[in-house]
Design a protein around this nucleic acid. Structure first.
Length: 558
RNA sequence: GCACCCAUAGCUCAACAGGAUAGAGCAACACCCUUCUAAGGUGAAGGUUGGGGGUUCGAGUCCCUCUGGGUGCACCA
């Protein structure tokens, strides 16, 4: 559309003394089919000291162009409708769908971005609420890459803390504990703690030995953490989600990095020592959403608390040399992150840009790992694949585990990514695994339909005449294809993958309407057939790339 | 109590960053497979955009307030 906006802006510039660049920013694409491009004249009214309707009228009279089918002034809007042939040719010739050309044009090639996402406590199998972090993060990674960025994806492993110590304690007699048992062990030990509070002393003793560098304890912690990370990453690997680097929190203790940063903090008058010896950062005056903003960074024996280690880590990321520094974080960490960010600024560095997302809710309420009322990502994955495979058996007669994965995993990602990050996702099985309508399967299915047609085509459609595509369904589809680049840029700008879900459904829906109303193969007009083949080939490319950016795969037959 | 986010059709979500008549999917109703994949398409139905004020030529969108949900509020990670 941007090419049409430019075109219209120039037409208006010629017909008036208004600047094209200014007009271009005011143009819009009407939602209800009033026109292809519209100029609301209300803002111009003040400047030109004329009624909006008058401005629109005058412009409508002055502007003539062979590309225009009609131009009209309606309610203060200047409405322009193009000749479909012009529209089709112009939009299709200028549409960019592939990474290379989009990266080239938008000038982001070679820039670097560090993205931290997931960073789940390494204590159990992830549930779908945590997975929202990974899915958003991974989609953003894909979008940045697509736009030509070099990405550096990090996972901060919180391998220090009571939670890990509890697992170490609970598995002290089970050297070969398996990943799949950890969740139950974690639930049980939390339960046991209620009746036997003395366990806590042992847990803290373990933690203490770990922090002070006791080799055996470190080995025990490492065993649990690595079991966990291996288990978690194996699950994410199935979903096509990978990291470049795992950063271990314990490193900041064992390599005494916390001490160095503490020295720097001590130079600030904001750091003070409480009566019992704890070191506290006074954060009054910062924009932090709590009444009495203080950040405690050490215990009374001056050993580090998580906040201090997090500051160290965040500093490391800030100094990585990347052009951008991104962090995906749950909404529960909003205030905490403000505190860390303030500390980072105090130390003269720039905190990361943060993407917050809200939690996934179950129909019966919130999820809680400790209480055990969670939907585990792996259960969701298994159910989704099973349901997809039964659908394949029902519709195609045979089981196909590979395709079932593509369909099932796609449904998972789509169901979680389709809501805006700031909104709670309400998870229910029926909705998430519904393969009809607004779903990833819809896009995958239509993609496969296109592939099926293209395979049967026996003509060369590499040089189409798009101006033959005059039907309303064709024009509507072309407009959607032309939006692709703007959509990707919008996801990039707002760091919001849900925009892609909406887009891919709208695009696919337009294709489906075209497909059911128009024949492609075997029509008499050979040039039209070529144009239509090229059109659906472009459609497939847009669907495939949009799904790819969501982390969703396609198959040629479904 | 204080702070931030959210509230749109019975349900789940959109609305291009203030623009025209608020759009989809699911569910329910009525149609369409001798035609390139029916996981599809068409039609009808469904709304005082949580309530109330305000700003604006124009508000679902911005401001205030109330109600309801989510999240958090130093010595956990």
């Amino acid at each position: 559309m941007s090419i049409l906006f430019k075109y219209v802006a120039k037409l208006i510039e010629k017909a008036s003394d208004l600047e094209a660049s200014k007009i271009e920013s005011m143009l819009e694409e009407p939602s209800n089919g009033f026109a292809d491009v519209a100029l609301p004249c209300f803002r111009l009214a003040k400047e030109l000291k004329k009624a909006p309707a008058m401005i629109a009228c005058e412009l409508a009279e002055k502007i003539t162009d062979p590309s225009l089918k009609s131009i009209a002034a309606v309610n203060g809007y200047l409405n322009l409708t193009f000749e479909p042939a012009f529209l089709a040719r112009t939009l299709m010739d200028s549409a960019r769908l592939d990474s290379d050309s989009i990266a080239e044009v938008n000038g982001m090639k070679g820039k670097t971005v560090l993205i931290e996402h997931t960073s789940i406590n390494p204590n159990a199998s992830p549930h779908i609420g945590r997975a929202r972090n990974s899915l958003i993060g991974d989609s953003l990674v894909r979008v940045f890459k697509f736009l030509g960025w070099k990405t550096d994806v990090h996972y901060f492993v919180n391998d220090v803390g009571k939670q890990i110590a509890m697992l170490v304690y609970a598995t002290r007699d089970r050297p070969n504990v398996e990943f799949n048992d950890l969740l139950q062990i974690y639930i049980d030990i939390n339960e046991e703690l209620k009746t036997r509070p003395e366990i806590e002393d042992e847990v803290f003793a373990l933690l203490n030995r770990f922090e002070s560098g006791d080799a055996d304890t470190i080995t025990a912690f490492k065993r649990i953490v690595s079991t966990c990370i291996k288990g978690q990453t194996a699950i994410f690997a199935q979903l096509g989600i990978f990291w470049d680097k795992f950063d271990y929190e314990s490193r900041y203790i064992h390599e005494h990095i916390t001490d160095k940063v503490l020295e720097k903090l001590k130079k600030s008058p904001k750091l003070f020592e409480a009566e019992d010896g704890r070191l506290v950062l006074d954060q009054h005056g910062e924009e932090i959403g709590i009444q009495d903003p203080m950040l405690v960074v050490t215990r009374s024996d001056k050993t580090s608390l998580y906040a201090l280690r997090d500051i160290c880590y965040t500093l490391d990321k800030a100094h990585s040399g990347a052009d951008r520094d991104l962090l995906v974080l749950g909404e529960d960490q909003k205030v905490y992150f403000q505190q860390i960010a303030a500390a980072i600024r105090l130390l003269g560095s720039t905190p990361p840009e943060v993407v917050h997302y809200s939690f996934v809710l179950l129909p019966e309420g919130k999820m809680s790992t400790r209480a055990g009322n969670v939907v585990l990502l792996e259960d969701f994955m298994r159910e989704a694949v099973q349901k997809a495979d039964s659908a394949l058996i029902e519709r195609r007669g045979t089981s196909d585990p590979e395709k079932a994965k593509v369909v099932g995993y796609g449904a998972i990602k789509y169901s979680i990514l389709r809501c805006g990050p700031e909104k709670n996702v309400l998870f229910d099985w029926e909705n998430a695994l519904n393969f009809n309508g607004d779903s990833s399967v819809y896009a995958q299915y239509n993609y496969a339909r296109i592939q099926s047609v293209l395979e049967k085509a026996d003509v060369d459609y590499s040089r189409p005449d798009y101006s033959l595509l005059l039907a309303s369904e064709e024009v509507a589809l072309i407009k959607e294809i032309a939006r692709f680049e703007a959509v990707v840029l919008s996801v990039y700008e707002h760091l919001n993958p849900s925009i892609l879900c909406n887009y891919v459904f709208g695009l696919t829906s337009k294709f489906s309407q075209f497909y059911t109303n128009h024949k492609i193969l075997g029509i008499e007009n050979r040039d039209l057939m070529v144009a239509r083949l090229a059109l659906i080939s472009k459609t497939a490319e847009a669907i495939k790339n949009a799904l790819y950016l969501l982390g969703i795969d396609t198959v040629n037959q479904l």
